[in-house]
């Protein structure tokens, strides 16, 4: 198989996803099929070809460092699952 169950579980951990035992086989199979297909890219000689990360030539967009309006904290926190004293609250870390 192109991608092992252990690799699927490792990558799922990196992506912060829990993959149940019953789903690992199915996912490994589906992703393996996709990776096999992606391997056709190896047929192309790309020696010396530069990579494209954006199709349009972009230049840095500079602006003056001036104070601008921004969301007020209450609006920014309005969708927070949990908040406390003007901050996002999360389970205890330490």
């Amino acid at each position: 198989m192109k991608i092992t169950k252990a690799e699927v579980l490792h990558v799922a951990h990196l992506a912060r996803l829990d993959i149940g035992d019953s789903d690992v086989d199915r996912l490994a199979g589906q992703i393996g099929t996709i990776l096999d297909y992606v391997d056709t890219l190896k047929q192309v000689d790309t020696t010396g070809v530069p990579a494209t990360s954006h199709a349009i030539t972009l230049t840095n967009a500079f602006r003056e460092d001036e104070l601008q309006s921004h969301l007020d904290p209450e609006a920014a926190l309005a969708n927070a699952p949990e908040k406390d004293d003007g901050a996002f609250a999360v389970p205890k870390v330490i």
Partner: peptide, 19 residues
């Protein structure tokens, strides 16, 4: 699950909450 959207509130460990 921190800034907006759904959070599994039953989790008390941060990493497990993310997952």
């Amino acid at each position: 699950g921190v800034k907006y959207g759904f959070r599994d509130r039953t989790q008390t460990d941060l990493l497990q909450m993310y997952r």
